[in-house]
Nucleic acid binder design. Structure first.
Lengths: 207, 207
DNA sequence: AGATATTTGTATGGATCGTTATAAAAATCA
DNA sequence: TGATTTTTATAACGATCCATACAAATATCT
């Protein structure tokens, strides 16, 4: 569900906003990505976005709603990237590696230390006590599982995979590989080592 | 490295401490487990432990040192549990399931909502900006990997595993399965479903 | 131009943050 | 008993937290 922006009246009335909402959301995401939801103050977000606190509240509601929107945006982007890698016309093992490469380029996209996955690195912590964040995470995880499973099912139909393999189980292992990469990236493992890890995991998963 | 406790002089001089350090550390761990490091104030920890803030500082130093000690204690306990499961005299698949069952009973040990893994649920968030926590997490992850790998190597020697299997790669997949369980438990997946997930993953991993 | 509408920056409110000063309380020592 | 040692509870410190009141700024409308 996208934020309303240009579908409002073509000519707006008062003083024009000084900052673009989407880039502000991106900057806010980067702030939360570093130090988590609880560990990131709204002042930090304001500094990162260049917006004043009142503007942030006018646009996003409050800190919690802002984080939820950042989380939804991250899911949108990363689910699309995973799906694109898996639905392209590549052999099974290549498709899986494309998905992991896409994830790695996100996990190592920051300036300083590797940030890992935004969900695993910041949202999972909040899921224990925050129902809204928990729901977003649970839904996203199911979507990833489904995308992997669909690809394995297709592979089985095309004869890329043994008949007795269980696509649902292989999907769990493929997702688990993604998750362990997300954790390890944030914990300091190098990108090269993680890519090798993915390569070996793919070899086992594809049989 | 254990905290000094009873190896001091048998007869101590001043007013005796009212609370046991180990149980206080356990209570503090449970506080952080719910809402994470940044999301848990020292007042909350004080309320959970029954200790006053000055007592907490006298015993543990500060909030950061207290969390690090809680993290070290958690690693000690969970690594010991995993190692016990894997080094017992069981067939490979049974040993792996014992390890996952041990983890599950920890992840679902709380009163309210499932807490998942303390490391994945609270420490990973901090690893991006906190070098000390990152080091603890990295070391612990390597230890888990090594324990799994040793068990797979043993299985290969005993003929439980195919000759061409790579113990290091299987260890990564076994650890990845543990990690995805840790994430999903905190995100709301039921214990029964996670056990089934583990069962299927073990079947694939063991070939 | 004047009225209206919307965003902006500043400044701050009340609560909570991590941490510590202080003195009373409770033990052993002489 | 009185001095010494250690822990305790209370209270508060300055800093920071999330959130908002307010008025100046900047646009379109009549």
């Amino acid at each position: 569900m996208a934020r309303k922006s240009s579908e409002t009246s073509p000519v707006r009335r008062g003083r024009p906003p000084a900052y673009d909402v989407q880039t502000a959301l991106k900057r806010a995401t980067e702030s939360f990505w570093k130090t988590g939801y609880s560990g990131t103050s709204l002042d930090k977000v304001a500094a990162a976005t260049g917006m004043s606190p009142p503007s942030l509240y006018a646009v996003f509601g409050n800190k919690h709603a802002l984080y939820l929107e950042a989380l939804a945006r991250y899911w949108d982007i990363s689910l699309a990237a995973t799906r694109e890698a898996l639905t392209g016309d590549h052999p099974l093992d290549e498709a899986l590696m494309l998905a992991y490469d896409a994830a790695l380029s996100v996990y190592f996209s920051g300036k300083g230390h590797a940030r890992g996955c935004f969900v695993v690195g910041t949202a999972v912590t909040e899921t224990a006590e925050d129902a809204a964040i928990r729901k977003s995470v649970a839904t996203g995880l199911r979507a990833i599982d489904a995308d992997f499973e669909a690809r394995f099912r297709l592979a089985q139909d095309k004869g890329e995979l043994k008949r007795d393999a269980d696509p649902a189980t292989l999907a769990i292992l493929a997702a688990a590989t993604m998750h362990t990469i997300a954790i390890r990236a944030r914990a300091g493992t190098s990108r090269a080592e993680l890519r090798e890890l993915a390569r070996k995991a793919v070899d086992v998963i594809c049989g």
